[in-house]
Simulated assay, not measured.
Amino acid sequence: MPYNEHSIRKMLPTTYPRKHVAHEIYDALTHFKSLVPLMDRYVYNDGTTKNLMSLTGTIPVMFEEDQTYNIPVCLWIEESYPQTAPICFVRPTHGMMLVGGQYISNSGEVVLPYLEEWKCGECDLLSLLQVMVVVFGDFPPVCMQPHPEPEQAPCWLQFHRHSEVLSKTDGSMYLDLTGEDDLPFQEHETNC
């Protein structure tokens, strides 16, 4: 859905400086097309919740060897914006793992000097996103989760999967082993 300043302003509650916030969000969206403005419930550290505007989606970050990766982020904009900085998080998707460090807390919160030294009138959403792109290029906030090597099933399980207990006509029992190719095992053949 293409957004314009008017549609964004309509999303914002009247408790926000709507014209200013809508303009900054629109400006950010023109440069970062994978972000989406959403009103959603934010949960503070003390457990209280509040409906806040957020910019959610991905930002393209270039790593070594000119590889571009889309880093999932969420920027929460409080009603006191632009006097206060947004609350920013990296949100790993399934298959990703958070890499905590100098600029990312263990909870995924973005901790940048730009946010800590936020100055109304000098700092804005677009500049914040551009700083995140540069910093995340040098210090990646996520990585792919390692996938363990598939283990071969133990011998007894392989035989168990391909075996069947059968009865002979004389009433005795025997074990019929079938290989992975669904053919009976030959004498002295093993799958281990």
Rank of each mutant, 00 (worst) to 15 (best):
L129H: 03
V43S: 06
Q152H: 12
M132D: 03
V99R: 12
P113V: 07
E149N: 12
N70P: 02
V73E: 05
L55Y: 04
H6D: 12
F89H: 03
M97G: 07
F185E: 00
S80N: 10
M1V: 12
L35Q: 00
L125E: 10
L112C: 00
P13Q: 13
V134S: 08
Q83D: 09
W156S: 04
R41C: 11
H162C: 00
S127C: 10
L183A: 03
P37W: 11
C155Q: 12
V73Q: 03
N191Q: 12
E180N: 01
P184T: 03
P86V: 08
M97P: 06
M53S: 01
M132G: 00
C120D: 14
H31D: 11
Y69P: 01
T30M: 08
P60L: 02
D40I: 05
M144T: 15
K10D: 11
I104F: 05
L112R: 05
E24Q: 04
S80L: 09
L75I: 08
E79A: 01
I77K: 06
M173K: 15
H160C: 07
E151D: 10
H6F: 12
C155A: 08
I25S: 01
P141D: 07
Y26K: 13
G100W: 15
P148V: 11
L128H: 04
L157E: 06
T190G: 01
T178H: 03
H20I: 14
